[in-house]
Amino acid sequence: MSSTISTTIEEEDLWDGGKRPFKAGYGKLMMWFFIVSDALTFSGFLVAYGFSRFKNIDSWPIADEVFTHFPFLHGIDAPMYYVALMTFILIFSSVTMVLAVDAGHHMQKEKVAFYMLLTIIGGAIFVGSQAWEWSNFIRGEYGAVETTGGQIFQFVNEKTDKRVALKDFAISGPSDRFQHQINDGVWYSYEATLPSYTVQEVISGFNSNPNLIIKTEKIDEKGHKIKLSREESLQKITQAKNVVEGANLVRNEYGNRLFADFFFFITGFHGFHVFSGVIINIIIFFNVLIGTYERRGHYQMIEKVGLYWHFVDLVWVFVFTFFYLV
């Protein structure tokens, strides 16, 4: 066989009971225990997402309309390309990890170190990409208004069928309103950052711009968001209560409040896993460099962190499907 075995086996691989369950080392089996339980945690989150989505099946935000950014392509509608790129980066860093494990079986120290380094770089790029994705999501692009009932109205140009940003039509009037900060009054009283426009400015801008109509959260049978006619829009806009720009845990301009909460929670939890994976990989990388595993006589540790790293990749495959595709 092409893959040779590492030399030390029998005695030290036996568990303290004198056996080797499943013919697997202790550390590796414990890593599998952890992975199974962590997989259940992630599936709990994803299923909770599915629950909320089924509960609001006719008004859930459409991912293609939310994640439309790509670096250096400003203003161009590029749904999904960026997450697809992130997926490829993560799969590729998974491959370099397997190659490191494989090199470990052959006791090739330099190759192990090199592939570990590539894996670390891939993981770091992925975490960076996620940060970029988050910052776009939080900043938002078009802005929207929220009604008393907590529904989101987005604005569309009836002629071109394109989304219209608040700053393109809101009429700024003189305003004395400024953010109430902690040092302005009693020490425990403060408020969040004010949106760029007041509700009144948005409404008057909307009224004086005859091309604008409202896009609601509701979805029709074909899976498109329902747009109101100009007359209906003029009537409904009076119910606007808040201006929403971007996303936070309370409200977001994309639609249902839970959507942003799940986005932050699930991708955040996954990003934290990738981050800790990178840290663990860095520690192992330096251990390889100083020859710890060379002296130990085998590279099983690479295999254990490899399992964790692939698991992170595996979870991303599911997050990608259920957040961006389905």
């Binding site: 199974v36 997989a39 259940l40 599936s43 709990g44 299923v47 909770a48 599915g50 629950f51 909320s52 989505r53 089924f54 509960k55 609001n56 099946i57 006719d58």
Partner: peptide
């Protein structure tokens, strides 16, 4: 088998429930 069983169970319960609430 552990994962398939537990996850399928969770998916079934919660999606049916979400659909019912809808």
């Amino acid at each position: 088998i552990t994962l398939l069983f537990l996850i399928a169970y969770l998916v079934f319960i919660l999606l049916v429930e979400g659909n019912y609430i809808y």
